[in-house]
Simulated scan of single mutants.
Amino acid sequence: MTSSSWLPWAILSAVFAAATAIFAKVGVSGLNSDLATLIRTAVVICVLVALVSATGQWQPLQEISARTWVFLVLSGLGTGASWLCYFRALKLGDAARVAPIDKLSVVFVAVLGATFLGERLSGVNWAGVALIAAGAVLVALKG
């Protein structure tokens, strides 16, 4: 697997996200969801510090542009809000229903990417986006 090929990384992301949902559902069962999110975040920070250190990827923070800082901070705030909401949803609902609704982010990314980033999707791509939306809703329905 090369670092320039996005597909294997995206598939691994999906596999790890699925594992995350199951582990989080079990882990949050006896704990406040916000504290569970904090513990998860601390683990992520420790792993990333170790990874960046082991691979020598540190760079002087003052070399990072103000624009990059702003968007990374906004992304971090979005991630934190997403995780808090996700863990609260897992605390209250079934993982098999919560995770598909969380994956509606795929639909939102397509719409926002087209609207704000000028990304172009074909008709077939938009049909796929619509199917993802419909599938997420159908999986989340209590039958």
Rank of each mutant, 00 (worst) to 15 (best):
Q62D: 14
W6H: 13
G123M: 03
D34K: 09
A99D: 06
R88Q: 14
A89R: 13
L131M: 11
T2N: 13
F16P: 10
T115Y: 03
M1Y: 12
F87R: 03
D102Q: 04
N32Q: 13
Q62P: 06
V70C: 12
K91R: 10
G128R: 03
S65A: 09
S4N: 10
L7Y: 06
A133D: 04
Q59E: 09
V70S: 06
V106K: 03
V129T: 04
I45V: 12
S29F: 08
L61V: 10
S122M: 04
A66V: 13
A24D: 04
S65K: 09
A81S: 08
A19Y: 15
L92C: 06
W6S: 08
I11K: 03
C46N: 12
L138W: 11
V139R: 03
G135D: 06
K25G: 06
A130R: 01
V129K: 00
P60K: 09
W6T: 07
G30V: 14
A10G: 02
S3C: 14
L38D: 04
V106D: 01
R97S: 06
A42Y: 14
G76Q: 08
L48Q: 07
V28I: 05
R88D: 14
A134M: 13
S13F: 12
S65N: 04
G80T: 08
K25Q: 14
R97M: 09
F116V: 00
R67L: 10
A89M: 05
T2G: 10
G30Y: 08
V52W: 07
I132F: 04
Q62G: 11
A18Q: 07
G80V: 15
V15L: 07
I101H: 01
A89C: 02
A114S: 07
V15C: 04
A95F: 01
L117E: 00
T37S: 12
D34A: 09
G56D: 12
F71L: 06
S3V: 06
A130E: 06
S4T: 14
A81P: 15
L12K: 02
E119A: 01
F108N: 00
L51P: 05
T41D: 10
S75W: 04
I22A: 12
A99N: 12
G27Y: 06
G143H: 15
L121H: 00
A17K: 05
T115Q: 07
T41S: 05
A96D: 10
I132Q: 01
I132C: 01
W9L: 03
W83D: 03
V124A: 09
W9E: 12
P8D: 13
L74Y: 05
S5Y: 11
L90I: 02
M1P: 14
D102C: 03
A110P: 02
G113V: 01
L31F: 13
G128S: 03
A10W: 05
T68S: 04
A134R: 07
S29H: 11
K91P: 05
L31S: 12
L84M: 11
G93T: 11
R67Q: 05
T68G: 11
Q59W: 15
T20P: 15
A110G: 03
S13M: 08
Q59M: 15
L117Y: 00
A136R: 05
V15A: 06
G76R: 01
T79C: 08
C85Q: 07
C85F: 15
L138I: 14
F23S: 10
E119T: 01
V109I: 13
V73D: 09
C85I: 15
A140S: 07
T20D: 15
K25L: 05
G80H: 05
A114L: 00
L138V: 05
V28P: 04
A95H: 09
F108A: 04
A133Q: 01
A50H: 07
